[in-house]
Design a protein around this nucleic acid. Structure first.
Lengths: 222, 222
DNA sequence: GCAAATTAATGATTTATTCAAG
DNA sequence: CTTGAATAAATCATTAATTTGC
């Protein structure tokens, strides 16, 4: 497409900032690029990110910190086996609230809503924004899927797919009926990335100023 | 650019106690069998939270700020939506770099990579992280699409989809060869939300060394 | 009664499809 | 028409309930 005057940009593209110490390298925390699965993410010796500094996280046994982030974990009433959190495991309360919201008509919450939901649900257990987002995505998809299958199997009831109990949700009368199928609405979700800060979490409040809510992503699959 | 610290959390939105006064079983008994019988009566026990202010979600009329809720919201007053444009308009330099990276084998950059790419591309024009992400998504999809159509029309050479020049992108020696088709690799992307501020888009980079930032959102479409 | 194997459910990602701006 | 942006569908991966064997 066009004239690319990229120079030798690609060469030191990633090195520009990695220069300093070795801690900046990716930690294997948020791998998004398909890094050929080695079928064994458990072994820290593998799961090597494109970075060069493996030793910084190869074995955090020395004391840096574990995945479980021993700093705060008191938020989960039911301790259970919370091994650092591989994936979100919702509590009954959380599910209840989410379902309520869903029934209330919420389909795809935007960033602000997700933020609030997450904040609220966080009182009942560890949770991140993405969990909320995914939950809605999955729930919506699976409800539809279930319904479709049901209608197929029963071939009945073309109308009123669901009675919709309408829980006491009539906050002020105007509740948006749940729009079964969402016909593509142009929405824009906010986007954000956090540049993981693994062990830097400790100096979180040291700065005093930067309090943006970065959700500390879960470490990695076991 | 565009990073700002959002101090304002969900201040007092649903601030209410989160006493575990309702958990009898404490554990979450997940019904393994789906309740297909009744349409969406999926609330097993429905450990209803003490006080859940659902109306705040559905209709945050009393909230400090407006929610992009789906009820009466249409085009939220977030007019600032596009400081300069509704959607990203890449420059030649940006495209060139992106294509170079793509040819180099990059398919789905992770958060850090996106962050860095964005930072670099930002030198040539306004850009956000999501733009980078979307670009890769779209480019990949369309390349494949184009290729498929081409092969269909020509019925020729189903192999060797792209020569792939493999530019010198060897970041650290271990560049994974272009993973043609990524057959689902388990990955986790970082997630973050920023609580957008209407007016505080003052992109001041007074931060200094910290490279961690949230990309300012882009309020909402339409 | 407990623990390993099975299986259903579902959280998390990727891919395909669609809409709309320029 | 091209392509950025967003959503829905497909599907991988992991957890918890259930079953099974001792």
């Amino acid at each position: 497409m066009g004239s690319m005057k990229v120079h030798q940009f690609a060469r030191g593209f990633w090195d520009q900032q990695h220069e300093p110490s070795l801690t900046l390298g990716c930690k294997r925390l948020r791998p998004l690029a398909p890094k050929l699965a080695t079928t064994d993410t458990t072994s820290p010796t593998h799961a090597v990110p494109p970075a060069f500094d493996l030793k910084s996280f190869i074995r955090p046994e020395s004391g840096p910190r574990k995945l479980g982030s021993s700093d705060d974990k008191r938020d989960s009433p039911q301790v259970e086996t919370h091994p650092g959190g591989t994936r979100w495991n919702p509590t009954q309360e959380q599910i209840g609230i989410l379902e309520m919201l869903y029934k209330g008509g919420m389909r795809t919450p935007n960033a602000q809503q997700i933020e609030q939901i997450t904040a609220q649900l966080g009182k009942y257990g560890k949770i991140e924004g993405k969990n909320v987002f995914y939950w809605f995505q999955n729930h919506k998809a699976r409800e539809r899927q279930k319904q479709k299958r049901s209608s197929l199997g029963l071939s009945h009831c073309p109308r009123t797919p669901a009675p919709i109990t309408t829980i006491s949700l009539e906050t002020r009368g105007e509740l948006e009926r749940e729009q079964e199928d969402s016909p593509y609405k142009r929405k824009c979700r906010s986007w954000g990335f956090e540049s993981l800060e693994e062990e830097s979490r400790s100096c979180k409040e040291a700065e005093g100023d930067r309090t943006l809510e970065l959700f500390p992503l879960h470490p990695e699959g076991r």
